[in-house]
């Protein structure tokens, strides 16, 4: 996405915070090879695991959600996550497309 002005994930994060939810913001900070979403793609997760937005088109979301819930539980500020290519036959987290991505998760508070 060349222009991010109207992407409304941050506005949505703000709405969640106003309704007293704990919010973790996940951002794609680096990619290698054929990863599905570009650098800057965002997703938000609350303490219950409800999420909005996307960081990989479905490949690693579940792991980002559990890491985000963990971040809230431990009350840590941030964490860097790295995902590599997965075995296509396994029901495992990873990128079937053969790419690699680095995701930064951080609490908004």
């Amino acid at each position: 996405m060349k222009s991010l002005f109207k992407e409304n994930i941050l506005e949505e994060a703000n709405t969640w915070i106003k309704s007293n939810q704990k919010v973790v913001l996940a951002t794609v900070i680096q990619t290698w090879g054929s990863s599905p979403l570009q650098v800057g793609s965002k997703m938000i997760v609350n303490e219950k695991g409800i999420f909005s937005g996307s960081v990989s088109g479905g490949c690693v979301e579940s792991s980002v959600i559990s890491e985000s819930i963990e971040l809230i539980k431990k009350n840590s500020k941030f964490k860097k996550l790295e995902f590599e290519v997965s075995n296509e036959n396994a029901w495992d987290v990873g990128l079937a497309c053969g790419g690699e991505i680095k995701i930064f998760i951080e609490q908004i508070n």
Partner: peptide
């Protein structure tokens, strides 16, 4: 350059917000 990413040899991530067409 309106480039998003980790700035080389640093731990700084930059994300640009560009005027929409």
């Amino acid at each position: 350059l309106k480039k998003n990413g980790i700035i080389e040899k640093t731990e700084i991530f930059i994300q640009n917000y560009i005027k929409p067409i």
